[in-house]
Amino acid sequence: MKKLVKINPRWLLLLVIMAVTQMSAQDIIDGEKMKFFENKVIVNNSPEEVWRILTAFGNVSSFHATIDDSFAINGSAEEAAVGSEREIQIPDGVNNIINKERIIHLIDGVYYTYEVYESENFPIKKMQVTFGLRRNFKGQTILYSKTYYKFNNAIASRLLKKKLNRANMDSLLAYKYFMENGEKNTEIKVLRKRYVESVKAGEDDDMISSISVN
């Protein structure tokens, strides 16, 4: 009779984490293998207020620092709903990145996911972005974003994946500042200095976090 081998619970947990990570790295959306990253921030406001602001979908540029312009298209309302569409313009040097986006999933008060179905001046082949909220074990409101993406080619992927991730984190910082202070369109450089440097200084280690699977 073979002797049973005991597995250390810590090793078992590590194996589970590795398995989940590997599966996530190979997620397939509409037949495409997609890479992803996830960012999150703590927001000092109620989940209800965070969700209310998050659902300002079509007119998000009215307060959001990282977007030059946005407007609802194809008869959509401004507020987020399944099927809502918008066009947004994101500053990127000489030419703005212009995306057309459509909400494909939404659970009220929890999250919504939109797809970028058309893009100009940025070599993205496919992208889906989820914004949502939850509470942590301390009862704080967490605003998070998870992005699945595939670039048009491998060179673009190597050169631009960090830029895409940073842009997503900047977006969360812009949401965070408006949700906490009500001040619109504060420059992103100011927000980076305010939040990111405070984390580096050890003032609030859990405020910002990032996960990337490449």
Rank of each mutant, 00 (worst) to 15 (best):
S145F: 08
K146N: 05
K146S: 05
T147G: 03
T147L: 06
Y149I: 07
K150A: 13
K150S: 12
N152P: 13
N152H: 08
N153G: 15
N153A: 13
N153F: 11
A154E: 14
A156Q: 09
A156R: 10
A156G: 09
S157Q: 13
S157V: 09
S157T: 15
R158S: 09
R158C: 04
L159G: 06
L159C: 10
L160Q: 12
K161M: 08
K163P: 00
K163Y: 13
L164P: 08
N165L: 14
N165R: 15
N165Y: 09
R166H: 03
R166K: 12
R166N: 07
A167W: 05
N168W: 07
N168I: 13
M169K: 10
D170W: 04
D170F: 02
S171C: 10
S171G: 09
L172C: 04
L172S: 03
L173G: 00
A174F: 03
Y175R: 05
Y175F: 14
K176V: 06
F178T: 10
M179I: 14
M179H: 10
E180G: 02
E180D: 04
N181H: 15
G182P: 01
G182I: 12
K184P: 00
N185W: 11
T186Q: 14
T186M: 10
I188R: 01
K189Q: 10
V190L: 07
V190R: 02
V190T: 14
L191D: 04
L191R: 01
L191T: 03
R192Q: 06
K193G: 00
K193W: 04
R194M: 09
R194K: 14
Y195N: 01
V196Q: 06
